[in-house]
């Protein structure tokens, strides 16, 4: 599912926290600062330590969950899930599920089932900050 401009803008500005789980359900989190979005693929620039940390786990379970980092944790309440693969040292995640995680009655709403136009309408009807102001 192609990401909306709002989701794209926020995760490209503030990176993502990536949850990965092994085949026994043991979970950990990777904090990535640099991400880019192309359609439904999120590409994450990992350090060598981060690649080593997740390589074996990904070989057994490639499904991951992402959430925007830094200020995006507050102002961009989304969760993205999909299959991830290491490609030329980068982590590429093909997004299959998108959820709203805004605290309140809309927490947990699955957005990707709305379709791209529906997700854009959802964003534009609820937010005025379609991109971060002065991200740094």
């Amino acid at each position: 599912m192609k990401l909306t401009p709002r989701i794209e803008n926020w995760i490209e500005s503030f990176g993502v926290h990536i949850a990965i789980a092994d085949d026994k359900g043991q979970i950990t989190i990777i904090v990535a600062e640099k991400t880019s979005v192309d359609g439904d693929v999120v590409t994450v620039d990992l350090s060598e330590n981060q690649r080593n940390q997740i390589e074996e786990v990904l070989s057994k379970n490639d499904y991951v969950a992402l959430a925007p980092g830094q200020l995006g944790a507050i102002r961009a309440p989304y969760q993205l899930k999909g299959s991830a693969h290491l490609v030329n040292g980068y982590l590429e995640v093909e997004i299959a599920e998108i959820y709203c995680t805004k605290p309140g009655p809309e927490a947990g709403i699955r957005l990707d089932v709305l379709g791209y136009d529906g997700m854009q309408h959802f964003d534009e009807s609820r937010w005025t900050d379609l991109a971060p102001v002065n991200p740094s």
Binding site: H17, I18, A19, I20, A21, D22, D23, K24, G25, Q26, I27, T28, I29, N61, Y63, V64, A65, L66, A67, Q79, K81, T101
Partner: peptide, 12 residues
């Protein structure tokens, strides 16, 4: 972050 028993993670 949590995970289902079959390894599908969730992060909020």
């Amino acid at each position: 972050a949590t995970s289902s028993i079959d390894g599908k993670p969730n992060i909020v």
